[in-house]
Simulated scan of single mutants.
Amino acid sequence: MAILHLDDLADAATTKRLVVKVGSALLVGSDGQPRREWLAGLIEEVAEMAARGQQVVIVSSGAIALGAARMGLAKGGRASLADAQAAASVGQIALAGLWSALLQDRGLGAAQMLVTLGDLEDRRRYLNAASTLGRLLEAGFVPVVNENDSVATEEIRFGDNDRLAARVAQAAGADAVLLLSDVDGLFDRNPAHNGAVLIPHVDGINDEIRAMADAGSASGMGSGGMTSKLQAAEIAERAGIALAIINGTRQRPISAAIAAGLGTVFRTQRRDAGRKAWLGGRLDVRGRLTVDDGCSAALLTGSSLLAAGICAVDGAFSRGDVVAVCDGAGKTVAQGLAEYSADECRAIMGMREAAQHRQLGYAPRPAVIHRDHLVVL
């Protein structure tokens, strides 16, 4: 059954497995202390879901904010990378203990999972994470997932828990992702502007929808705005996973949003197979191939990417790295695993097979990106 409305999220028949993302500004007050009353209300809702037969994964921010308060660090622990990593190390213990204690009060067991970008970008590690999540959920535990900020750097991190939640949902085989925000959902313009209208549901993300997003994070504590939430929705959608955005600032926020009918549901439009869903959600793109119009059109019909259609090569990538495929206007139309390095792609771009053989000095591979390793975005 498809998830079409907010109230479907509370129905075990449509949403057996749900990922709930909680941001720092909701979990931690301006004083650096946990907002225990608000958290107790949310966990009460999680317990009610469990009683209905639903399984819940929580993606929780807050480690850096909690750790910074304990260490007395300036700028919420974000003055430097060293401060952020140290604060995360201290805060992760506090965060795990907080969730564990509150869930236990409701008769639920908690499990902590700290992941890095590489854990979900590497296929084998991704499958290991998926197996762990599945086993925990089957055993009746609530996995609490966070990015491992104590070791992550700017080059190897998700950067926001919106996209992390979508990737975790893919790994967990979830039916839906619920992002708790500081606004009611996606508006047709910045909700601070007069006349802004809430969009109750979105059937496919396009340029018009992307133009509605505001990239800022109002709290100053989080790292993602509406743009990151739309990116999360695109990742989820490729795996046939619905995504919803609601206002998390209210007490018992899920029940409040459902009762008021306030939120945005991004309905699924496609369901890629497991490997392609994982590939389409990968964020660590190492280079870019620009293709001509004929090649771009062929990719949309399921063809492999051939060297003859490549017009330009950017980046320094190796065979097996993920690269973006862009049309002449610079729009990313696909991404996939390259069969050649960047230098080899530059050497053979625009060439047909016979010319490639002469240029490379060996028989060329069937494609630069084989269709089995390519996802149209």
Rank of each mutant, 00 (worst) to 15 (best):
V59E: 00
L39G: 00
A84Q: 14
E208G: 11
N194F: 07
N206Q: 13
L374W: 13
T132D: 05
V168W: 02
S61K: 11
G159D: 05
L279E: 03
G97S: 10
L6R: 07
E44W: 06
V20T: 03
D372F: 07
G222R: 15
V375G: 02
A172Y: 02
L230I: 15
A69F: 11
S30T: 14
R125A: 13
T132C: 11
R288W: 12
L299M: 10
S80I: 01
S24D: 12
P366K: 05
A96I: 14
I254Y: 06
W38N: 10
T15A: 00
L27S: 08
L377F: 14
A174S: 06
R288Y: 11
F158M: 11
I310D: 05
A363T: 09
S30Y: 02
L73Q: 14
V333D: 06
G216K: 13
R157I: 10
A218P: 08
A342L: 05
C326R: 03
I369E: 09
N247P: 14
L289I: 15
A260G: 09
G97Y: 14
A233Q: 07
A165P: 09
R346S: 10
D188K: 10
R346Y: 07
L117T: 03
G216Q: 11
L114G: 07
D343E: 14
S131V: 01
L136I: 02
D119C: 15
A101G: 10
T15G: 04
G280R: 01
A347K: 13
A10H: 07
V291A: 01
A74L: 11
A176F: 01
R271Q: 14
R157Q: 13
A12M: 02
L117A: 02
M212G: 12
V376I: 07
L95M: 11
R288Q: 11
I209Y: 14
R78T: 01
N206H: 14
G72V: 12
V202E: 04
R36S: 13
A215F: 15
R282L: 15
S303P: 02
A239T: 02
V90P: 08
Q55K: 14
M221Y: 08
M113K: 05
L178T: 04
A239V: 00
A324S: 10
I254T: 01
L42D: 03
A273W: 12
I310R: 00
V183D: 09
E45Y: 03
D11R: 09
M221P: 01
R52E: 04
A355H: 09
D327I: 10
M226E: 05
V197D: 15
I348Y: 11
L102W: 09
S217G: 15
L374C: 01
L186T: 04
L120F: 06
A101T: 05
G315A: 12
Q104N: 11
R238E: 03
D293M: 04
I245Q: 10
G361Y: 04
A69M: 14
R123C: 09
R352E: 01
